[in-house]
Amino acid sequence: MRVLAILGRGAAVALAIAVTGCASSDASFGERQELANMPARLMVPATRPATLIGTFSKHCLETPSDNAARTALLRASDYVPMGGWSGGTRRFVVADLRPMVILSETGRTCAVQAAARSGQTNAIAAEIARTWPQARPLAPSAAYEAAWETAPGQAEVVALLRNPRGPGQNEITLALMRR
């Protein structure tokens, strides 16, 4: 317990995540060290709106839905995995102010997550209108703050979710979900 007090809460959380994810993860020893040294506040950072949108575009829209390709791109972009697959998802983080990237095991969902910061909601609405001009809003739901079908009859939805009690506190998630 004395070690945890010396390390601080953030380092202890990162260390616990790194250690528990080792068995089912393909993370290298170096990646596990990098994760263990990452402050917890940077795992879900307060990301600038442009960075949130840019990361979403790069890792969720411009990359094939093949997880191997997405994982390779994430690693090439300095992201490290937070362990292996857990509950059908895998998370990747980086020690700067870019958001966490979450992939689904099926490859049908990709999301970015950050702590809420001013301007993100408006930036997301503008990006939806720019990227998918035919997008139509879906009916309100308790599952999301807002969601759009990207085009009529398209089996693809973009959703904005909020988690006021997440580890990053007041988290915002932008997700692309393909049916």
Rank of each mutant, 00 (worst) to 15 (best):
A5Y: 13
I6P: 09
G8A: 13
V13Y: 09
A18D: 12
V19D: 04
G21C: 07
S24C: 03
S25E: 01
E31L: 02
R32E: 04
R32W: 01
P39E: 07
A40V: 10
M43Y: 03
V44P: 08
A46H: 03
R48I: 07
A50E: 15
T51A: 06
F56W: 05
K58C: 01
C60M: 01
S65K: 05
S65F: 05
D66K: 11
A69H: 01
R70C: 02
L73V: 10
R75E: 04
A76M: 06
A76W: 08
Y79S: 04
V80F: 03
W85Q: 05
W85T: 00
S86A: 14
R90P: 04
R98K: 12
R98L: 11
I102G: 01
L103V: 08
T106P: 06
A111E: 11
Q113T: 15
A115V: 03
S118L: 01
S118P: 00
S118Y: 03
N122T: 12
A123T: 07
A125N: 13
P133F: 03
P133V: 03
S141E: 11
A146W: 02
A147L: 05
P152L: 08
G153F: 11
Q154T: 14
A159M: 07
A159V: 03
L161V: 15
P167M: 15
Q169C: 07
I172W: 05
R178L: 09
R179K: 14
